[in-house]
């Protein structure tokens, strides 16, 4: 399945992926309203890590055998036919077993709602918002087999 992959060598840690992820997961889908008006504030579903010249954005891998789904005690986490791992918020009880299980650290606590929050690959969008809005093509939406070119700088 297609996933979002980061290209460290061109990520400039601008965090626009985070900004647009948050907006994509807001009710208004409007930058100003999403940040300034909506309460509880919508959450971004990916994170940018940065130290010195090294930086990259990271989100759920939608693992073929997802530890989070297997660990979920209520069945709130599911892996669909399309491979996307989703949280059913009405089933989630905020026990954070998934946070304990996910080796990617890709699930965040939505403290306002007490449920797990994670990348959903932007359902309905052809390209996830983070990828679409990365100004430097540092995020690519690709099949695993297409990865060979990702690490080339020359």
């Amino acid at each position: 399945m297609k996933r979002v992959y980061a290209r460290e060598e061109v990520c400039m840690a601008c965090t626009l992926c985070e900004v647009h992820c948050l907006v994509q997961h807001s009710r208004s889908r409007d930058l100003v309203k999403a940040f300034k008006r909506e309460r509880p504030r919508p959450l971004k579903r990916l994170r940018v890590e940065e130290r010195g010249p090294l930086s990259f954005a990271f989100q759920c891998r939608h693992c073929p055998e997802p530890d989070c789904v297997y660990a979920c005690v209520t069945g709130a986490l599911t892996k669909g036919e399309d491979g996307v791992v989703l949280v059913q918020e009405d089933k989630c009880i905020g026990c954070w077993t998934c946070i304990m299980a996910c080796p990617y650290g890709s699930i965040e606590r939505d403290l306002a709602q007490g449920v797990a929050s994670k990348c959903d690959l932007c359902p309905g969008e052809e390209i996830p918002a983070c990828v679409k809005n990365c100004p430097n093509d540092a995020l690519v939406f690709a099949e695993e087999g297409e990865l060979a070119w990702l690490s080339t700088t020359t």
């Binding site: 290209r7 061109v10 400039m12 010195g52 010249p53 930086s55 430097n136 700088t153």
Partner: peptide, 18 residues
Amino acid sequence: WGITAADPRLGKRINPDI
């Protein structure tokens, strides 16, 4: 803009493909 930058953090702002 990462063009005349010595700092590798800034040089990354140019994606050579783009």
